[in-house]
């Protein structure tokens, strides 16, 4: 298994300082659990944040210079070229759900998958790889899980609930190497503001307030016999559909 993990130079949501992105740390943990060769790739200059990713157990990180090409094209070309693993093809690209500090749209993995013409799945909590087919488990809200088979090399987005957060170690951070590859023309990061796009400080807006199902008190049973109480609870839960009677 040869896995590439997409790393971004993130910012902490609270402090605003450069920091690794939680979803990408989860992706590192998942790749290490899968085993095989693992490489972190960041498109852009190698900042101090890349070293911190190394502290989570990533031994090699490549800072890719995009040169004149766009970020997606540059990365797709790098993955196709085989330069990542000495000519051997890449089997898997793991990403977080979305970046933290840039546009944070979560669109990048999709654009990359489109450029590579690979299938993509996100919100993955478990991976099993056998010859040519990757079996993944996808997390849906409320603890629901969904299995899927994905053919061939693919791009997978890791869910926050994935149980693979590796421990940080200072020694690993010192040991890991951050290499540069390609033209490191220090092109300024793509400008998010445009003619019809404006950037301004975030303002938290209230969400809609929803009507609560039962405002003040519902049915009250005072001092029922335990049997009557138990029956009432059972019937109520069955009525709500949370208790299956068939089992």
């Amino acid at each position: 298994m040869r896995t590439i993990i997409l790393l971004s130079a993130g910012y902490d949501t609270v402090s605003g300082r450069p920091a690794p992105v939680a979803g990408e740390i989860g992706a590192i943990g998942m790749a290490l659990a899968l085993g095989g060769e693992v490489l972190g790739v960041h498109v852009g200059p190698a900042g101090p944040t890349m070293r911190e990713y190394a502290g989570y157990g990533l031994e090699r990180i490549v800072a890719l210079g995009a040169g004149q090409a766009g970020v997606v094209e540059a990365l797709a070309a790098y993955i196709r070229s085989g330069a990542a693993f000495d000519g051997a093809p890449v089997d898997l690209v793991l990403t977080g759900r979305r970046g933290s500090g840039g546009e944070d749209s979560g669109l990048f993995p999709y654009a990359l998958a489109h450029a590579l013409d690979w299938p993509i799945m996100r919100d993955i909590v478990a991976i099993q790889a056998t010859q040519g087919v990757v079996e993944v488990e996808q997390a849906l809200p409320r603890g629901v899980r969904r299995r899927a088979h994905v053919k061939g090399p693919c791009v997978l987005g890791v869910h926050e609930m994935a149980p693979f957060t590796p421990a940080f170690s200072f020694a690993a951070m010192r040991r890991g190497e951050v290499l540069t590859y390609g033209e490191t023309a220090d092109s300024p990061p793509a400008d998010m503001a445009g003619a019809d796009m404006q950037i301004r400080p975030y303002r938290a807006r209230p969400r809609l307030i929803q009507a609560q199902a039962s405002g003040t008190g519902g049915q009250v049973m005072i001092d029922p016999t335990p049997q009557a109480a138990a029956q009432a609870i059972r019937d109520h839960l069955v009525m709500l559909g949370v208790l299956q009677t068939g089992r």
């Binding site: 605003g16 933290s100 500090g101 796009m197 404006q198 950037i199 301004r200 400080p201 975030y202």
Partner: peptide, 10 residues
């Protein structure tokens, strides 16, 4: 956008 510190207005 930007770690919820900015917002994009289209």
């Amino acid at each position: 956008a930007m770690a919820r510190r900015s917002e994009q207005v289209a």
